[in-house]
Design a protein around this nucleic acid. Structure first.
Lengths: 129, 129
DNA sequence: ATACCTAGTATACAAAAAGATACCTTTTTG
DNA sequence: CAAAAAGGTATCTTTTTGTATACTAGGTAT
């Protein structure tokens, strides 16, 4: 059975936040991106949220922030070496996540998607046998 | 560099929630547990929260709920077969998480812990460089 | 002189998640 | 008759997250 001996919460700490997955996705895919490029890539995010999520990732040394002292300002973000080490974990999460999605499809039918989880949950919460 | 091609969010969906990690930890460790045993194992959780987290895990077919139709009621929770398949992911998260913790310790000093992340973040948010 | 550029910050507000507390069920025990 | 037992639900309040909007800095182009 292999009980995991706790502390996967550390990874959660890093990834939790509405926009962190997308931000990471873009940085992992594109390498180095400016603040404004990230904004364009994630149209619905506000500056405040983008800044916040980036700062949290920077705190965990997942993302590096390079400031060019110019006017107008230029700031580039990229995945740190330490951050790259997380990619195997993300890959593992991704792979199992995919198979989990098809498992959910088997259970609840095809008209499922990650976004519609909540709606389904309500129905489910009602007692059944 | 190996860019993870997205959708690790599915795993986040399952694990996010203040009490999910602890609940899973106990179920993975102890096998089958009654509602009240979980409550005792996690003293600060309220019934409402425990129920909610369990229902969400049940929805994802990670946790199974077995009802004994007795008075007083008896309900047992356990990890499903599908849920056991997640243990490798949790293990990966756990392992990298541990190394990440020591990395943080190198960066910020020993008086660090998972719980004190936030306090540190505030200091960090202020511009540096 | 004014507008524009980028990468933010400040402030106020709305929405979502979590906490506190009380109540319900049905049978057995005192 | 009242209390206890286990596993909840209902309702309300508080806390945490996220959104919307306006504003800033300092130099360049018009």
């Amino acid at each position: 059975m292999e009980a995991p001996h706790c502390k996967f919460e550390t990874v959660l700490e890093i990834l939790v936040g509405k926009w962190k997955p997308v931000v990471l996705f873009h940085l992992f895919s594109n390498g180095t991106m400016r603040f404004s490029e990230l904004q364009k890539a994630i149209p619905d995010i506000t500056k405040k949220m983008l800044t916040q999520q980036l700062r949290e990732l920077e705190y965990h040394d997942i993302v590096h922030r390079k400031i060019y002292h110019q006017i107008p300002p230029k700031v580039e973000y990229s995945i740190t070496e330490h951050g790259k080490g997380m990619s195997t974990v993300l890959q593992a999460m991704n792979d199992w996540g995919m198979s989990h999605l098809s498992h959910l499809n088997e259970l609840y039918g095809e008209e499922r998607s990650v976004e519609s989880f909540e709606g389904r949950l309500d129905e489910f919460t009602k007692d059944k046998e």
